[in-house]
Nucleic acid binder design. Structure first.
Length: 284
DNA sequence: CATCAACCCTGAGAGC
DNA sequence: TGCTCTCAGGGTTGAT
C-alpha cells in the first residue's frame, strides 16, 4: 500500500539518469529515470484511471510534452511537464514501471501507458483500479487541500501540538486524514503510534506537549526508516522495498510486543485494521 | 468539526 | 477439484 516512503522511493527512481541502457540498469538492480524523455503518445486501457481531463483530451494534450521533473507531495507523484502537470496517486495497488516499449507484452492490470519518443515507456499498473492520474495546468488544482509534509522542517513541535490540540477526534484517524497531515497511511500510522507509546483511540486534544513532540519524532523516524529501506512490499504488490520485515506492530497480531513482550492486539478503528500493544499504548 | 458508511475493485481464503 | 461466496485492504467522498 504505497504511503509516503513508497511514493518517495518511486519518485527518486524516476529521477535516476535517463541515459543508460536497460541492461546496465538491470545489472544495478535499479531502473532508469524519465526526466528529459518526450511523451510520444498515451494509451488508456481503463478509462476511469484518468481522473481528468476526458480521455481524448488527455491523450492529445500530453503528447509531445517533455518530462521536466519528478517530485512527491503527500502520496502523489508529481510530474512537471512542459505545459502541464501529471499527478499520479497509486492508492492501494498502483505501481509504475519504466521499460523498453518493445519489451513486449502488456501485463495484466496495465491501465495507462505513456510511450516516449526514444522507444521507452512508463506504465501505470493497478490491479484494483483505485489509482488515478490527473493532467492539470497547475498542481494546486489537486493538491491544495493537503496538510503539511511530515518531514518538512516548517512543521515544528509547537505547530504540531497546536494542530492536535484543536481536534477532539481519536488520534489515529486524524493522522491518516491527508488534510491534517499528508503521506501517512495505515502501516506507518500504527508503527509511529506504537513507537510513541500512544493508543490509537486517544483523543488528539488530550495529548501532552511531551507526547505530541514524541509522536512527531516517531512519525519522522518510521518514515525515514521506510525510505531508507525503499519502502515496504506487502501482499502481492511488490515494490522492491523490505521495510515489511521490520514492522513492530503492523500485521503482528498475537505476536509479542518488541518492547514488553505482550501480545499485539488488533482492533478496527475508522474501518481500518489497527495494531497496538495493550500494555505500552494505554488511553489516559 | 465529528462520525459513520458507501464506494472503488481484485484476489485470497473459506465453505461446500 | 472446482465452484461460489465473503471480505480485507486504503483513501476519498458524501450524508448526518
Amino acid at each position: 500500500m504505497p504511503e509516503l516512503p513508497e511514493v518517495e522511493t518511486i519518485a527518486r527512481s524516476l529521477r535516476n539518469a535517463a541515459g543508460l541502457d536497460f541492461a546496465t540498469w538491470q545489472g544495478l538492480n535499479a531502473r532508469p529515470g524519465i526526466v528529459g524523455r518526450t511523451i510520444y503518445s498515451a494509451t488508456v486501457n481503463w478509462s476511469r484511471s484518468i481522473a481528468t481531463p476526458e480521455i481524448e483530451v488527455f491523450r492529445q494534450q500530453i503528447s509531445g510534452q517533455v518530462v521536466q521533473g519528478v517530485n512527491r507531495r503527500g502520496k502523489f507523484l508529481v510530474l512537471q511537464l512542459d505545459r502541464d502537470w501529471l499527478l499520479i496517486h497509486l492508492r492501494m495497488s498502483g505501481d509504475v514501471r519504466v521499460e523498453p516499449a518493445d519489451s513486449g507484452l502488456v501485463q495484466p492490470h496495465d491501465r495507462v501507458i505513456l510511450d516516449f519518443q526514444d522507444g521507452t515507456r512508463l506504465v501505470f499498473n493497478d490491479p484494483r483500479k483505485f489509482g488515478r492520474l490527473w493532467l492539470v495546468s497547475h498542481p494546486d488544482e489537486v493538491l491544495s487541500g493537503l496538510g503539511p509534509e511530515p518531514l518538512a522542517v516548517e512543521l515544528t513541535p509547537a505547530t504540531f501540538y497546536a494542530m492536535l490540540h484543536a481536534r477532539k477526534t481519536p488520534v489515529k484517524p486524524l493522522l491518516m486524514d491527508q488534510r491534517f497531515i499528508c503521506g501517512l497511511g495505515n502501516i506507518y500510522t500504527d508503527e509511529a503510534l506504537h513507537q510513541a507509546q500512544i493508543h490509537p483511540l486517544q483523543k488528539a486534544h488530550t495529548l501532552s506537549h511531551e507526547e505530541s513532540e514524541r509522536l512527531l519524532s516517531t512519525i519522522r523516524d518510521v518514515l525515514r526508516e521506510g525510505i531508507q529501506r525503499n519502502g515496504a512490499s506487502i501482499d502481492w504488490v511488490y515494490r522492491g522495498g523490505d521495510f515489511q520485515n521490520f514492522f513492530r506492530v503492523y500485521q503482528r497480531t498475537g505476536k509479542p510486543c518488541l518492547r514488553c513482550g505482550t501480545a499485539i492486539e488488533r482492533i478496527v478503528v475508522g474501518q481500518r485494521g489497527t495494531h497496538f500493544c495493550p500494555l505500552c499504548q494505554v488511553i489516559h
